[in-house]
Design a protein around this nucleic acid. Structure first.
Length: 269
DNA sequence: CCATGAACCTGGTCGC
DNA sequence: TGCGACCAGGTTCATG
């Protein structure tokens, strides 16, 4: 479900309930949910420790306890929310934590989502690239990084080891805005277009955060709110509709095994 | 270095 | 109504 704007929105929606609070217990309904730690680790390192901060890094939601942190990755259908009660009839609750009076619930229909225990950010910093909404992400950085690689631009944008946060929706949107074909090799794109792409990435992510993200089907935050950025989509899911720039019919392709939407006139290889 | 396909899962939709 | 095929905001691993 979630790319950077959705993870950012979810992070902010749970943050206010968690800061200065403590996790009093953990219940796991789907064993694989805990990726790299056990119930015993939780008891020793997390239980009753004060939550100092809640923030996002890439598509991970991080709950910082000072000496350790919990990381949550929602993958495709994960939801994280605070609620007053646990719905026992809900068969998709993979795990939940007890707070003082409420619960922090991790619900995940497809069960791809994972919860991690990290000592600090070093493991994530090693595998993840730079943040697109940080000062480091300049057009110069993007030109340097992308023109040094001979990869199709779409899979490169989806690769979290260089730049984090982009997923299937925002990649298609940014490529449509900057008029780049998703299969164009990154080192064959003009600097002008790479500059446009840089700007488009910041634009789509920023605008979507303002809308609370994009809800296509599963994504919600704060239990039931949906994101409204779907109304602003130019390419993703727009097949058979006219391109909002040139009126040509948007088509759907498969690129790197992902459904991909382009305007065949604006985005030439 | 790069691309491809499968795997991990459940549920919704579409065509017959 | 039923059934199979295919699809889905992600990531990782194995294989050419």
């Amino acid at each position: 479900m979630p790319e950077l704007p959705e993870v950012e929105t979810v992070t902010n929606s749970v943050k206010k309930h968690l800061i200065d609070n403590k996790l009093k217990n953990i219940n796991v309904n789907w064993d694989k949910t805990l990726d790299n730690f056990t119930l015993k680790d939780f008891k020793n390192k997390i239980l009753n420790k004060k939550i100092l901060n809640v923030f996002r890094r890439g598509k991970y939601i991080l709950i910082d306890f000072g000496s350790n942190m919990i990381g949550i990755h929602l993958r495709m259908t994960g939801k994280l929310y605070v609620s007053e009660a646990i719905d026992k009839k809900n068969k998709h609750i993979s795990a939940y934590f007890n707070l003082n009076e409420k619960y922090l619930v991790f619900e995940d229909t497809r069960k791809f989502g994972r919860i991690y225990l990290f000592k600090d950010l070093s493991i994530l910093d090693k595998k993840l690239g730079i943040e697109p909404l940080s000062e480091e992400f300049t057009s110069k950085w993007l030109i340097n990084c992308f023109s040094n690689k001979q990869r199709k631009i779409k899979p490169l944008l989806l690769d979290q080891s260089h730049l984090v946060g982009m997923g299937n929706i925002y990649t298609d949107e940014a490529l449509w805005i900057s008029k780049i074909h998703p299969e164009k090799k990154s080192n064959e794109i003009s600097y002008k277009k790479l500059k446009d792409l840089h700007k488009a990435i910041i634009q789509v992510l920023t605008e979507s955060i303002k809308c609370g993200g994009t809800t296509i089907r599963d994504y919600t935050y704060d239990f039931s709110y949906v994101g409204n950025y779907a109304l602003n989509l130019f390419a993703y899911g727009q097949n058979d509709n006219p391109c909002k720039r040139c009126n040509t019919t948007i088509i759907k392709l498969k690129v790197a095994q992902r459904g991909t939407y382009i305007c065949p006139k604006c985005q030439k290889i």
